[in-house]
């Protein structure tokens, strides 16, 4: 059994999430509609409503090491239907960044790797070079022939340019990557709207 009320104040984690996302998870009364509509729910070990619950009871480690936060597809179904209008997508974004920032192991390595390679491509060219991204990803995942059939089929239809396009304003893109910080502090918004 885990005791909730240890030395830390029980609102510590929810306050942090509120400060970084502007979303007040204490409004959640656990109706479960987010999980009910989540397209990825069947792949999740911890359902979205439970992520919110865990934030409410200060279970930071469980949340930040969960695969759920990485499996969220940002499809916005939960936010659209949430009776309390909690922007769960924004909360998930903040949880992902917190998880990285605080050095939690990401249980969905592939998703994280893809995201990193994607952004690396943007950083290098200003745009995404899909072929390069896929090759890099497959090599790093040690499955070089994954989706090969599909890849060849796309290639044969002239849909995958071999060379990346590089934009002119690369200095600006580099600057953006250099200057961007992961978090924006926010004031809690009543309706939680974007």
């Amino acid at each position: 059994m885990r005791c909730l009320l240890v030395e830390e104040e029980v609102h510590q984690f929810s306050n942090l999430v509120k400060a970084l996302s502007g979303e007040d998870v204490s409004k959640c009364y656990q109706c479960g509609k987010c999980s009910a509509g989540c397209p990825i729910a069947s792949e999740m070990e911890i359902l979205p409503n439970r992520i919110i619950r865990l934030i409410q009871i200060n279970s930071k480690d469980t949340v930040l090491s969960s695969s759920t936060i990485w499996l969220c597809a940002s499809c916005e179904t939960c936010f659209t239907r949430c009776p309390e209008e909690i922007d769960l997508v924004r909360v998930m974004d903040v949880l992902r960044r917190l998880s990285l920032e605080e050095g939690y192991r990401c249980p969905e390595e592939g998703i994280l790797r893809f995201n990193r390679f994607f952004l690396a491509s943007v950083k290098n060219y200003g745009r995404v070079h899909e072929l390069g991204l896929m090759m890099k990803y497959n090599l790093a995942s040690r499955q070089p022939f994954k989706d090969l059939g599909q890849g060849i089929a796309l290639f044969r239809r002239g849909k995958i340019p071999l060379r990346p396009q590089r934009i002119k304003g690369m200095d600006q893109i580099k600057g953006i990557f250099a200057k961007s910080k992961p978090f924006l502090e926010r004031e809690a918004s009543g309706g939680g709207g974007r």
Partner: peptide, 11 residues
Amino acid sequence: VKGTDTLAGIP
């Protein structure tokens, strides 16, 4: 009808 069983924790 798509729902979730929040007690069992499954969709």
